[in-house]
């Protein structure tokens, strides 16, 4: 790993740490209804929404009521998006005259954007009208992210409230997350992106003549306004097919850095919000430390393998060394303006979170460089994670960790003063087990059926990696494409939709239930036998549990894909 790479990662991490505290404080104020500087502008809007929708925002909900409100809200949004896609031909803001989206692709896309996955089996500029992009996809970018933040906040309430059966109001949390956090942040970030050269218009596509005299169609559209929420909401669905490799989505080194920062921003800030709501910011920093250490390990691993490149090329006399004139290493599928470091760093960031935006093609990474994004997702998207879902996933892992620690020393496990008992452990197991069941189950189905095998473009272990990656990003609600898999088929559209939906909702439900189970419990004051959950020992234990749960479950599948491909490459059998 070059000194330049170390410096870039260090600068990136330092800025993430710097924004965590102010963002965390602001979000805590928003969700506990303390005054904020945006109140004069937003309180009247909030009140108007509640009045228009007939919402009693002060009414507290049980965890079950909260979950059902979230489910019905998502169901309605998903069906409306499906309808919009199917009928876009008859609707305005369609200057290219794009036809209605076919049913299986529309279903896949509706499931994808409702679950905050934003997997795209389509090319945006050739499939979706401006109206579908703005009123359908961008709408879900906001509300699916807001629903994730809302769920994280309500789950924190379950952990920190004492002897209370209710956990807040879903509509209050949803509206606040959208109005106070996502909309203002996206407004500012969109302006910055426009300054950097990202277009935002409703014009027909431009036709131009290239230097060689050929005619080229240059896609246009409301890009900047959707680019901001794509990263801030850890959505990841690009306006254009090639996502953030496209110069209209990610034109400059500064836009690249800011987009990477905005992917981590809210997830990092929520750890501090958690610490504040728990009454001990060190609890939040402990979770932050776990996330940061796992992130740095993944980032440097991916950068190392991408900088080293393919040894078979070096044997042919090709110069892979980094220099002032070339990035060196493995540059297949990468933008020369980003090089190895920023491509591998972005890949780690986008898969640690459930973002899934890409600025390089993960399919073209070296086998072990490409293993890192896959493992990041398989660890359960808890490394900053999806906005909201990352934090509550980490809290489930924290509960598992204190349970294991309790078993070791023979004491009743506690977390934040709440006793962890059999009900919480059953719910934690439901949360943990459905994830690998979805990924490995669907991957096994795909490799067993001709319809699944038909999507593979590279035979052998790399083809298996393509399938494993696809169902991993689906269940993890990540949405990044490994690339190379022909996924716009009935088989992949349906199975990936049925992979994404439980990956979001069937995992959120047990997490909410756990909060509902902890909320009514009394808080026990710490004693000499209490395992402190705000120190280095807990950080180490939590990292161990996350790695063991992820690594043990997925190691055999990884051995069949990227690991064996690495040995075949180094042995000179595969180039």
């Amino acid at each position: 790993v070059t000194a330049n790479a170390i410096a870039q990662v260090a600068i990136y991490m330092a800025v993430v740490v710097a924004i965590t505290v102010p963002l965390g404080i602001y979000m805590e104020r928003v969700f506990t209804a303390k005054p904020t500087f945006l109140d004069p502008a937003l309180l009247p809007v909030e009140r108007a929404i509640y009045r228009f929708c007939g919402i009693a925002s002060e009414t507290e909900m049980s965890w079950g009521g909260y979950a059902i409100a979230m489910l019905l809200f998502s169901l309605t949004g998903m069906l409306l998006l499906y309808l919009l896609e199917r009928l876009q031909w008859y609707l305005p803001f369609n200057p290219q005259g794009l036809p209605g989206v076919p049913p299986s692709l529309a279903f896949n896309t509706a499931a994808s954007f409702t679950t905050n996955t934003n997997w795209q089996a389509y090319g945006g500029e050739t499939t979706m009208s401006y109206l579908t992009q703005m009123a359908g996809l961008a709408y879900h970018n906001f509300v699916s992210a807001a629903a994730g933040i809302a769920m994280a906040i309500t789950i924190i309430r379950g952990f920190v409230r004492r002897s209370v059966k209710t956990l807040g109001n879903f509509w209050f949390d949803l509206v606040r997350a959208t109005l106070w956090i996502l909309l203002p942040a996206c407004l500012i970030f969109s302006m910055v992106l426009i300054w950097q050269g990202v277009p935002d218009n409703l014009s027909p596509y431009t036709q131009d003549t290239t230097l060689e005299g050929a005619t080229q169609v240059i896609a246009q559209g409301p890009v900047a306004s959707q680019e901001a929420i794509k990263e801030l909401g850890t959505n990841g669905g690009g306006f254009f097919n090639s996502n953030s490799t496209h110069p209209y989505e990610n034109p400059t080194p500064l836009s690249n850095l800011l987009e990477m920062l905005s992917i981590f921003a809210i997830g990092a800030g929520l750890t501090y919000t958690f610490g504040l709501m728990a009454g001990d910011v060190r609890q939040g920093w402990a979770l932050f430390a776990v996330m940061a250490l796992l992130f740095l390990t993944g980032a440097f691993t991916a950068i190392h393998f991408e900088q080293r490149g393919n040894p078979n090329l070096a044997q042919l006399g090709i110069n892979l060394a980094p220099s002032a004139t070339q990035s060196g290493g493995n540059m297949e599928g990468k933008e020369t303006r980003f090089g190895n470091t920023d491509s591998a760093l972005w890949a780690t960031i986008t898969t640690d979170t459930s973002c899934g935006a890409v600025n390089a093609m993960h399919d073209s990474f070296t086998p072990l460089g490409g293993l890192v994004p896959m493992v990041d997702m398989q660890l359960g998207e808890v490394i900053f994670g999806g906005v909201g879902s990352g934090l509550y996933g980490m809290l489930v892992m924290a509960v598992l960790s204190v349970f294991i620690a309790g078993l070791m020393v023979g004491r009743t496990p506690e977390y934040l003063g709440k006793k962890i008992e059999s009900r919480e452990m059953k719910l934690a197991m439901l949360y943990v087990l459905i994830f690998p069941a979805l990924i490995l189950g669907f991957a096994a189905l795909a490799v067993a059926l001709p319809a699944g095998l038909a999507g593979i473009t590279n035979p052998g272990p790399h083809g298996f990696s393509q399938i494993l990656y696809a169902y991993t990003e689906g269940a993890a609600n990540n949405g990044s494409a490994f690339g190379g898999l022909n996924a716009n088929s009935n088989f992949y559209n349906w199975t990936l939709a049925l992979d994404m939906l439980p990956g979001r909702f069937m995992m959120a439900i047990p997490a909410l239930a756990m909060a509902g189970s902890l909320g009514p419990k009394k808080s026990i004051p710490p004693s000499a036998g209490t395992f402190p959950t705000n120190g280095a020992l807990f950080v180490g234990l939590l990292i161990g549990v996350i790695l063991i749960v992820g690594a043990l479950t997925f190691f055999p599948a990884l051995a069949l894909g990227p690991i064996v491909e690495h040995f075949l490459m180094t042995g000179g059998i595969l180039s």
Binding site: G64, I68, L75, L79, S104, F107, A111
Partner: peptide
């Protein structure tokens, strides 16, 4: 044909969310 597929999508979506609501009920009784 496409109307039948539309219907299949709507039924599948509704079935999934109904199952999720039943899952909420199941987790309540756990």
């Amino acid at each position: 044909m496409s109307v039948m597929l539309d219907l299949l999508v709507v039924v599948t979506t509704a079935a999934f969310f109904l199952t999720s609501i039943a899952y909420v009920a199941g987790c309540t009784r756990l």
